[in-house]
Nucleic acid binder design. Structure first.
Length: 426
RNA sequence: GGAGAGAUGGCUGAGUGGUCGAAAGCGCUCCCCUGCUAAGGGAGUAAGGGCUAAUACCCCUUCGAGGGUUCGAAUCCCUCUCUCUCCGCCA
């Protein structure tokens, strides 16, 4: 959520910033509503104040034994006036809040202009696209030839966009997850955390997934609905909900492995084959809670931590700064890390690292106490994949493939594979 | 699933219709005192929001959540959620 005060006092500036994303902010509608809010709130609070004053004087009169009948007569219709004014205020406030909750975050000035993916700016590149002296296979062909990926079985069980992995390949994904968790906790100082995979709507409002992106989520039909998490970001970031951290408790660095569930409506026709885009996938997620002044530096370090994983796996990648039109709803700035996939001869997203500044914190009331002012201030939240395990598995398969369809196990993963160095069909 | 108890400020814990944003204690901050330490004395110490240039006044809201009764609710009524104890079941 954008600071309501900023929205109120610098409406045109906010609209201009959001326009960079291609978001059209109807300032007339907003200002009209905001004007009514102000009038109604002032009026309502005046009635409330009056009611409190008269209730006090009635109490006092009663204690003194004075006749309270005239006082009661004086406040006779106060209740009605208060009720109607309050009802109007509540409805206007709900309308405003809905507008505010659906407004994307302000972009950082460093975000490059552009309208879609093709305008993203490459920041750096690590490694060179892997070279092969044979015809490369994609992960689908590799996996099926090994007999360790079964898309047909998955679709019998769950329909499209699911995968069944077996044997060494299933273990390889687990090895990747374990390796990532160990690296982030042991090398990068993160605290490992285990969280619920089902969350309440409020948690998703906190991170910005609701109310706008309900369609992307799976929901239960229990009386109070649960949502399957689309990323660990949701439960982990909500650890800060309603919190007031002391200065010495920050920064917080969390790492969590969870499955992620996405409905992927609206992505018909994209990546329909293979396990690039699934309803369910495994991901290791990094989350930072920091004080405001540190968040841009934190974005750099978080992105760096995700990159280390690819470097240790010796997977070629590049980092791109998302352009204005491509930055996600709640982020002020985002780096995507794209890994080289020989099967597609393309760099494909394997991690997305974002600074949300106070956007999520404001929705969650996540604060820290600034010792200089003694007052609670909003923290800044960041998160990034470190990295997506399903896609990392694809990247390893395709980049480590041999002519005979076998797959070498990256050196750093071998200890997690019981020393296995090569995955091949029996 | 059954039975019972509970939910109040950073914590413990009073408070069954009015002067209660809330006693007391602890903790914390500042000041005083004591040659150090311990002890002691004093003052302060919730969050959100509105108004505003203001983190100054002033005002509003909040005692698990939502509704109701009332001029007035932490206190009375209804619904829900959560926590704890015991029994049952269960990974």
């Amino acid at each position: 959520m954008i600071d309501p005060k900023l929205l109120r006092h610098s409406t045109a500036d906010v609209a201009a910033n959001l326009a960079r994303r291609g978001h059209q902010f109807d300032t007339d509608e907003y200002l009209e509503l905001e004007g009514r809010r102000k009038a109604l709130q002032v009026e309502t609070e005046q009635w409330q104040s009056e009611r409190n004053a008269s209730a006090r004087s009635i109490g006092k009169a009663k204690a003194e034994g004075t006749d309270i009948a005239p006082l009661l007569a004086a406040v006779k219709d106060l209740g009605d006036k208060l009720d109607s004014s309050e009802a109007a205020l509540v409805s206007v406030q709900a309308g405003l809040r809905d507008i505010e909750l659906r407004l994307p975050n302000l972009l950082d000035d460093s975000v490059p202009d552009g309208k879609d993916e093709s305008d993203n700016a490459e920041v750096r590149r690590w490694g060179e696209p892997t070279k092969f002296d044979f015809e490369v296979r994609d992960h689908i062909e590799l996996g099926e030839n090994l007999g360790m990926i079964d898309f047909e079985a998955a679709s019998r069980i769950s329909g499209s966009r699911f995968t069944v992995l077996s044997g060494p390949l299933a273990r390889l994904q687990r090895a990747l997850i374990q390796y990532m968790l160990d690296t982030h906790t042991e090398q990068h100082g993160y605290e490992e955390i285990y969280v619920p995979y089902l969350v309440l709507a409020d948690a998703l409002i906190g991170t910005g997934n609701l109310p706008k992106f309900e369609d992307d989520l799976f929901r239960t039909h229990t009386e109070t609905p649960y949502y399957l998490i689309p990323t660990a970001e949701v439960p982990v970031t909500n650890l800060a909900r309603d919190a007031i951290f002391e200065a010495d408790q920050l920064p917080k660095h969390y790492v969590a492995h969870t499955p992620c569930f996405r409905s992927e409506v609206g992505s018909y026709g994209q990546d329909t084959r293979g396990m690039i885009r699934q309803h369910q996938f495994e991901k290791v997620e990094l989350v930072h809670f920091v004080v405001a002044k540190d968040s841009m530096a934190a974005l750099e370090s978080l992105t760096g931590h995700a990159e280390v994983i690819l470097q240790k796996l010796e997977l070629p990648y590049r980092v791109v700064a998302l352009c204005a039109g491509d930055v996600g709803f709640g982020a002020t700035k985002t780096y995507d890390i794209e890994v080289w996939l020989p099967g597609q001869q393309k760099y494909r997203e394997i991690s997305s690292c974002s600074n949300y500044n106070d956007f999520q914190a404001r929705r969650m009331q996540a604060r820290w106490r600034n010792p200089d002012t003694g007052r609670p201030e909003l923290i800044h939240t960041l998160n990034g994949s470190g990295v997506a395990a399903g896609r990392a598995l694809i990247a390893v398969m395709e980049n480590y493939q041999n002519d005979d369809g076998s797959i070498r196990v990256p050196e750093v993963l071998q200890p997690y594979m019981g020393g296995v160095e090569l995955i091949k069909a029996d």
